[in-house]
Design a protein around this nucleic acid. Structure first.
Lengths: 188, 188
DNA sequence: GAAGTAACCTACTTCGAGTAAGGTGGACTC
DNA sequence: GAGTCCACCTTACTCGAAGTAGGTTACTTC
């Protein structure tokens, strides 16, 4: 049911997707959708929730057991870019959640926060204690995590159009950028 | 007219905003809106176009005349974060354009591309020629630019909720992250 | 002053989100 | 075994908003 809805939303876009069509393709009548999901936005939320959970599961699994922070980062990113390649529909929903859902949902906000926190923790882990404490207090660590998430999302969108790049290559790009910064590609 | 529409879209969200309301607040009748903008989506597009142009103008002006690439980056980011602080409404539209506009507009896509290219050029400028050539051919330079844009957008969203941070501080965070990468906050 | 036209409005149609009220089949009571 | 209840599902509606048809005003041009 959620799967069908996800497909229709991805195909048509949120506004253009009609509950009638979803209901028909599910093989059920419209009031049923409203029974279960309360509203069109509710249905969308359910889809996003599902997609987000899946993404989270995949990345956490990938990260688990990595010996070093850098390795964890690499594995996590590989999983992330892989997910995007394999599950375009789900990714579309996750990517657009903020604008699709009119009323900001605390729940979704919280889930997103978890994602960022995971990154922040990873980064904190391979940072020396003193620096980490400073970074955390000043908000720099949070900022860095946000930056990483945003950068990777954009990178993912970009890589969608480059069929020649495998998720692993993209992940490698990201790790390099992240780790070394621009200084490394600068001559100085 | 576009300004009013922008306000309403920002207040209510795209779906919830009604053409009737916009028309009324503009002080004109609905068919007029359709005369000028063809459709609701057309009106939205016009708003986004306007906002994007403004953002571009501001950043390009800020970048112009910087002696070094790093300085240009800093100035550009300051302008960017400043814009977001001052013109929340416009920023909301730009930020959500992809999901709001169902039919991908080549024109908007092109504008976004220009933004990324500007960054890519900046980065190419302060990179030694050999590295730059490699980076460009492999797509790394493009990837880096996309990464920067995405990271900064996310950072901007994050900084909205931190009233204590001025745009300049956020810009400084971004420059540091960009330039030095994570290696610098790592102990190694 | 008549013809034409640009700018605008009122009053519709249409379509889709959301709902009310009713039907069907199985389980449970006596 | 008949009656009653209840979960589940449907048809058939309301209502609001996008988009449009056709008329009206006022101003220009000859």
């Amino acid at each position: 049911m959620i799967q069908v809805a996800e497909t229709v939303f991805a195909e048509r876009g949120y506004t253009a997707a009609s509950m009638d069509e979803i209901a028909e393709r599910v093989g059920v009548s419209k009031p049923m959708l409203y029974e279960y999901f309360h509203s069109k936005e509710g249905l969308l939320l359910a889809c996003i929730r599902e997609a987000r959970a899946e993404l989270r599961r995949v990345t956490e699994q990938a990260v688990a057991g990595s010996p070093t922070g850098e390795e964890a980062l690499r594995q996590g990113l590989r999983a992330f870019f892989g997910f995007i390649r394999d599950r375009k529909q789900s990714w579309l929903l996750v990517r657009h959640e903020a604008s699709l859902v009119g009323t900001a949902s605390e729940e979704l906000e919280a889930t997103r926060q978890q994602q960022t926190d995971l990154i922040a923790t990873l980064m904190g882990d391979f940072t020396d204690p003193e620096t980490a404490r400073f970074a955390e207090e000043s908000g720099l660590l949070q900022a860095a995590a946000e930056f990483v998430v945003g950068g990777c999302e954009r990178l993912a969108i970009w890589s969608e159009q480059r069929e020649d790049l495998t998720p692993d290559v993209v992940a490698e790009y990201a790790v390099n950028l992240l780790w070394g910064g621009l200084a490394q590609i600068s001559g100085r």
